Computed example of a mutant assay.
Amino acid sequence: MGKLNGISLFANVGIAEAYMEELDIEIKIANEIDEDRARFYQDVYKDTHMVCGDITDDNVRNSLVKEAIEKKVDFLIATPPCQGMSEAGLRLKYDSRNQLITYAIDVIKKVKPKFVLLENVPKQLTTRIKYGEEIILIPEYIKRELGDSYRFNKNTLVMAKDYGVPQLRERSIFLLVRKDLPYIWEFPEKQREITLYEAIGDLPSLDPKLREGLEFTLKKFPDYERKRKEGLEVSKWHYPPTHSWKQVEWMMHTPTGKSAIYNEVFYPQKVDGTPVKAHHNHYRRLKWDMPCRTITQNNGVISSLACVHPGRLYQNELGEDLYSDARVLTIYELLIVTSLPLDWPIPDWARETFIRKAIGEGIPSKLIKEIMTELIRQI
């Protein structure tokens, strides 16, 4: 069959596409509504035509369809926004973002690609959307619309950790093959899990940069500059994240795998000492002996869901037991646990918060690589 020509809808910054070229898959067209993400994508994938626009706009969608047909697109990947369904979101009953799948389906029906990959959070399987006068489950909607033309994979739930990605991240992925083709597309055989220690355990330790200023940082962490330079020798993206001293101090007293909310003294608290109300996974350090927990878009904030470095036990000059690396993962560490290429050309103009959010919303690159490899092996 030769090289596949693809189109990517809801493309984000192209995390899913990181290994496509390596597999001889050429993404001809991509669509993203956010201007900064579209610009990021175009900077990384210079040969792809990035269409920055709203897919719900008939003119934008029709232009995508026209170009996809002209460029003989035979593969479509769509990763609609998941915030309307995500466990970390508000999950409104009929969030308008949940309806975005319908526009992807419209493109599929008009372009008729040979292969389709639809990805979202597991909650997609039990989320209902409006379908004419009915309210039906998203999987039922997809199968009603495409079942006559496409075969579906049997199992749609997949864990990134089962495919060489050092991150748990469960996803719902529909793999579709047009019925006039003889291929059976299912998830490949599972691989050995990679622990966080195997993934990032050999990287230089970093002290956080404190919001109170460099002088205060050096007072609390005399080795800050030495460690910072050692980190930058590994990568320009392995630099100290910035946090407030109060949160750093709480995490310095928090053991690997534990949450600061259970500390007896150094627990998250307001100015008057009142404990901060938090989920049991907030202010939590990751564990060394298992894959990283699912990375969220708010991964740069200590108080977010399980995003603090595991740390290592040490004793200070007073003999207190403390834990190193009282910080979130660096961007370099995020590249590793998201299985992105370590030389992935992140544009210099992209701000840290923007990069973190984009990575937190992306599907791990190697998971997509392994799934696509299973298809390429057949064709």
Rank of each mutant, 00 (worst) to 15 (best):
G6L: 08
E134F: 04
E70R: 09
L175K: 08
L335C: 05
P188D: 12
F221R: 01
L286Y: 03
E233C: 03
D180P: 00
V234F: 00
L4Y: 06
S244Q: 05
P341G: 03
F174V: 01
Q83E: 10
W237K: 10
H49P: 09
D54S: 04
G231Y: 11
K154S: 15
I355M: 14
D36C: 05
A68G: 13
F174P: 00
T254L: 01
L286T: 11
I355T: 08
K287H: 06
I363P: 04
E22R: 05
G319F: 01
R351Q: 10
I363Q: 07
R228N: 06
F354P: 01
Y131P: 00
G300N: 09
T102L: 08
I25T: 09
R171W: 05
G231Q: 03
Y131F: 11
F354H: 07
L335Q: 02
Y131D: 13
D325A: 11
Q124G: 07
F75N: 02
A30Y: 02
I363T: 15
L175C: 05
P182T: 15
F221I: 02
I368A: 00
E26K: 13
K112L: 13
L218H: 07
E87R: 04
L218P: 02
L118K: 03
N62C: 02
I184R: 11
A104W: 05
Y323L: 14
P113K: 14
D348F: 06
L125N: 06
N12I: 03
V51Q: 10
N153M: 01
L375W: 04
E26G: 02
F10S: 09
F266L: 12
R97M: 04
P291E: 04
I136A: 09
D343I: 03
K3E: 15
N281K: 12
K109R: 13
Q315T: 14
F152G: 08
D272Y: 00
K72F: 08
E333P: 11
Y141M: 08
E374F: 02
R356T: 08
R228A: 12
G132S: 09
T102C: 15
I346Y: 06
Y163K: 08
S172Y: 05
F187N: 10
K246P: 15
M372S: 10
N298H: 13
I69A: 00
V165K: 00
L146V: 03
D207G: 04
P182K: 07
W288K: 06
F75L: 15
I184P: 07
Q99G: 07
L286N: 15
M372F: 12
E230K: 01
T330H: 01
S8Q: 11
Y103K: 06
E198P: 12
D207W: 09
G257W: 04
D321F: 02
V276I: 15
Y163L: 14
E370I: 06
T338C: 08
L196M: 15
E249N: 13
L367Q: 07
V337D: 03
K369T: 12
H243G: 15
L100Y: 05
H309W: 01
T330V: 08
E22F: 00
R293P: 12
R377K: 06
N316G: 09
I184D: 13
P139I: 15
A306D: 09
H280Q: 13
L313T: 01
S96Q: 13
Q124M: 13
I105S: 07
L218K: 07
Q269D: 11
I77E: 05
F354V: 02
G6I: 15
K112E: 14
A306K: 02
